[in-house]
Amino acid sequence: MSAHNHLAALNLLLTTQRPEILEKWTAEILKSWSKRLPNTFNVSEMRLHTAQLLEQVSQIFACYPTHGLWDFPESHPLALIMSEFSASRAVAGFTPTETAQYVMSLKSVLTLALIRVGITSAAELETNLSAVEDVIGRLTLVTFSAFVATRERIILGQSASLIDLSTPVIRLWDRVLLLPLVGVIDTARARKFTENLLEAITRYEASVTVIDVTGVPVFDTAVARHLMKTVDAAQLLGTRVVMTGLNPEGALTLTKLGITMPNVITRATLRTGVAEALALIGRRIVTIPSSQS
């Protein structure tokens, strides 16, 4: 890389006033992060990090190309460092702004410092300022997009585990399964619980499956369709389906859709539904004669 030093002013600044610039930058960051809980970052670690980053940035300015912009591919070590840093901020719960501020505050510190130097040539000032804009600007973008990517990954990971945990298939009795549906039923959840249910029906050769919808707050046409698919597939496997917990609104929706659920035993409460299920396998719950209450 050429050492043309057309960024003489900037490079001089970074060589002679490094500690002051570092201090100003760190102060800006601390100001922005002051609302952060003390345990989320270690100040001395942060100072070390900023010092190293400023060193890297200085080297970039020392070799900045005379023509065109700085070459900053995704594989550039600095890009990787910033991505990692940003990801760790995201995991630690920092806001997007706080994370972006980290890099952006260096821009304002350098810009102000450059202006204070008192460069007489407007062209020279422009060259120096645009180099700062270019490098710090791109670094900020990399930081920001890494932050967003990490956040998305976290959210997706959480949704996936929620989907897994949220609708277990319960073995109520020998050959009787219970699927308690709770919460909003969207396509992803419906698919998951349907697949789980069908596998369980086959594995345990369930003669009866109780599907309880007491916990489903909204029964719209989408939910009704998901449910019908589940019921149809379960019945195709040979299990009897008992549906419990439908509320008046749900009954209305299903009827309006022309869904009558033939062959499904419907009961208002889980309790009566379970009694029906047990009856289907020739069982019932009785009081043990000698029990003390």
Binding site: T194, E195, L198, E199, I201, T202, K229, D232, A233, A234, L236, L237, G238
Partner: peptide, 12 residues
């Protein structure tokens, strides 16, 4: 007899 679970699902 013997419909596999995902065969049932796909048919539906």
């Amino acid at each position: 007899c013997g419909i596999q679970p995902f065969v049932a699902l796909t048919l539906v």
